[in-house]
Design a protein around this nucleic acid. Structure first.
Length: 641
RNA sequence: GCCGAUGUAGCUCAGUGGUAGAGCACUUCCUUGGUAAGGAAGAGGUCGCGGGUUCAAUUCCCUUCAUCGGCUCCA
């Protein structure tokens, strides 16, 4: 009996039935079997050691394939579990999957307390066990036997996992002295794992449920050689350098103060400047396409948020109310109810629509203390908010226009790496997390999907991520250290119009509720500037840089000339910073470089004599001498956003 | 909010059961120097806050606050 194997390049070869992918690799080349970690057989990733008994397509997976990597890391999680089990008694294991960069295993440490110091010990043990090149052995097992095994072992977590599995589809994997309930696949043997780094120790709720026991999660990453590990650690170090919290301090953008409160950033002058500049961009952009600017108070009565429906959903994340004359007032956590009241303040005709109300609104949200994160997750925030009230017929063009605005901004800021997500409701949570209008949900989700498809914007759809009042498009971005954030959001609201009794008179003299679009393409100042810091690694484009040109006189003999240069550049609209300190030029340059000021002009005897300036570009070095006029012309183009 | 770690000068960090140190930054003085750190002196800290143990606590213990790594959450 033979089987026909189709390779990715289309080639078809015949092999003896029962041959494994690993054996096939051996027939193709001598070195290949050492690299094969798993096999994609008929589109499904499997152990490379499983016999192939029918015709199949085959792709051999190595470290260079995502499937190879994830199999490698999954096996590494098992290796770590083996090491932990051999070092400590009474450990119970939850789950141990591969993740984007490595793997983790959730464990119940029982009487042991693991600390960071244990990680090194576990790493050593893992290397020792990896060296034994233990094979991963797959074993189909009956549910009864599996239950017996883990009952004997006393691992209630595995027993709980088994409850959800169907008899006849249960497999164990064994390597060395460790057996785990596992679907697989795994690498052929532990010998492939050559470099190991256990990254961190953290708590994680069993099955992600905060009401259940918190287990200890150990994160790790492994590689097939030391070099790759070194490179990876170096990459992490580089990423840390562009962490907005570090840059925010270094470039004097913002600060926190314990007496002010957690999550309440104080914007330093450089940060204040960025805010002004971004706001200028938003106002200009919105003016051009027919938005009106409004302003609303930072607080409102409880009744407003009861009407909007926010209070029951979000009470926990609002600052507690203040009570005056028996009336409760809340700090606003969102601007929408205020804007709705503005819409409702005067009667509206269909001729007035669409109405687009914009405001950089300041909101306060009582985020969990544990979730605060630099500028990316704060408790006071200023949002690039606007609400568009339109008819059903106008919806598509309005929604498209909003998307176009997003793309315009992305172009201005050079944002290429993002993910658009259509966040939908979850039918099983209607009436709880989501407003109970099943048909309207389907209808609006379809409307949004169509706009995205018609505009040719790639997106993915995710359930159970919508706002309570309607579906939304979220723009997902990643922080320097890889954490995922929603940068901006674009939402459809079919509920609040009715709740606020917002009406317009249509052509037929009938009252109708408008559809409301909530949008915040520039996010909040906090998150957007946090993102920009990481995006640009602190090197803001010229138009946005708080200080554009550092004036660096070589000695105070040239101060008068330097001041003349500074005031001429200021007249031409540039933002200059004069360094009058009695420091050497090398020191002044260094300080300007550290502050990432885009241009430096060195001014000394030579310059004063021929009426020029020497220009140095940040990160590049000396770019030669210019007259002030020529320099201004040089910067003109770059200074446009 | 939960698990874990951390908290010493503006910043980065040493250190100790007998009330503290470095580098950078800051102030003053000297230096007037040509493309990433010139020199000297000085000033600056209730060792996060509160409590306990002790003759004595910055150090050991507890509480609390904040930050960090995760989890949960995220309008």
């Amino acid at each position: 009996m033979s089987v026909k194997i189709t390779f990715p390049d289309g080639a078809i070869k015949e092999f003896q039935s029962g041959i494994t992918a690993l054996e096939i690799a051996g027939q193709l080349s001598n070195s290949l079997p050492k690299k094969v970690l798993a096999a994609e057989i008929n589109g499904e990733i499997q152990d490379a050691t499983r016999p192939i008994t029918g015709d199949a397509t085959l792709k051999l997976l190595t470290w260079n394939d995502n499937g190879g990597k994830s199999t490698f890391w999954h096996s590494s999680a098992h290796l770590m579990a083996e090491a932990i089990e051999s070092l400590y008694k009474g450990i119970k294991f939850g789950i141990g999957p591969p993740i984007e960069n490595g793997f983790y295993y959730d464990i119940d440490t029982g009487h042991n307390t693991l600390t960071i110091n244990d990680l090194e010990k576990i790493e050593k043990k893992m290397l020792e066990l990896a060296n034994q090149k233990s094979e991963f052995k797959r074993k189909a097992i009956s549910k009864g036997d599996a239950i017996a095994y883990f009952t004997e072992k006393g691992d209630e977590y595995k027993l709980e996992l088994l409850e959800g599995l169907e008899d006849g589809h249960i497999t164990f994997y064994e390597q060395g002295g460790f057996t785990d309930l596992c679907r697989g696949p795994h690498i052929p043997n532990t010998g492939h794992i050559k470099a190991i780094k256990l990254m961190k120790l953290a708590g994680a709720y069993w099955r992600g449920d905060e009401k259940r026991k918190q287990l200890t999660r150990i994160y790790g990453v492994t590689f097939p050689n030391q070099q790759e590990l070194d490179d990876y650690l170096k990459m992490l170090e580089e990423a840390e350098k562009r962490d907005h919290r570090k840059l925010g301090q270094q470039l004097e953008i913002y600060t926190f103060d314990e007496e002010v409160g957690p999550g309440l950033p104080l914007w330093l002058p450089n940060g204040g400047f960025l805010i002004e500049k971004i706001e200028e961009l938003a106002k200009q952009t919105e003016d051009e396409v027919g938005y009106s600017r409004v302003r609303t108070p930072h607080i409102a009565k409880e009744a407003l948020y009861i009407r909007s429906g926010h209070l029951p959903y979000y009470k926990e994340s609002m600052f507690p109310p203040m009570e005056l004359d028996n009336v409760k007032y809340y700090l606003k956590a969102m601007n929408c109810p205020h804007h709705h009241k503005i819409f409702g303040a005067m009667p509206k005709s269909y001729k007035d629509l669409p109405i687009r109300l914009a405001e950089y609104g300041t909101c306060y949200r009582y985020e969990d203390s544990g979730s605060l994160f630099g500028l990316m997750r704060v408790r006071s925030l200023q949002m690039n908010d606007a609400h568009i009230y339109c008819t059903k017929e106008q919806f598509e063009s309005e929604f498209r226009a909003v998307n176009a605005m997003y793309l315009k901004y992305f172009k201005i800021f050079g944002i290429e790496k993002y993910k658009m997500r259509l966040s939908k409701h979850d039918p099983s949570k209607l009436g709880q997390k989501y407003i109970n209008e099943p048909e309207l949900w389907i209808e609006t989700e379809e409307m949004v999907r169509n706009v995205l498809i018609n505009s040719g914007i790639p997106f993915e759809e995710v359930q159970d991520e919508a706002a309570f009042y309607g579906p939304k498009i979220d723009i997902q971005i990643y922080s320097a250290i890889g954490r995922e954030f929603t940068l901006a959001t674009n939402q459809v609201d079919f509920a609040q119009g009715k709740r606020f009794n917002l009406k317009y008179i249509n052509k037929d003299n009938q009252e109708e509720f408008p559809i409301i679009i909530h949008r915040a393409p520039l996010s909040t100042h906090e998150r957007f500037i946090g993102f920009l810091l990481e995006h640009y690694a602190g090197n803001f484009p010229l138009w946005l840089a708080p200080k554009q040109i550092a004036i660096l006189p070589i000695s105070d003999k040239f101060m008068t000339y330097a001041e003349g240069v500074a005031s001429k550049l200021k007249e031409k609209g540039f933002r200059v910073k004069m360094d009058e300190r009695a420091e050497k030029i090398g020191k002044k340059i260094r300080d300007a470089e550290v502050m990432k000021i885009p241009y430096m002009t060195v001014i000394g005897e030579k310059e004063e004599l021929n009426g020029q300036i020497s220009v140095r570009k940040h990160g590049k070095g000396d770019i030669g001498s210019f007259s002030i006029e020529d320099f201004a012309v040089l910067l003109q183009e770059e200074n446009k956003r």
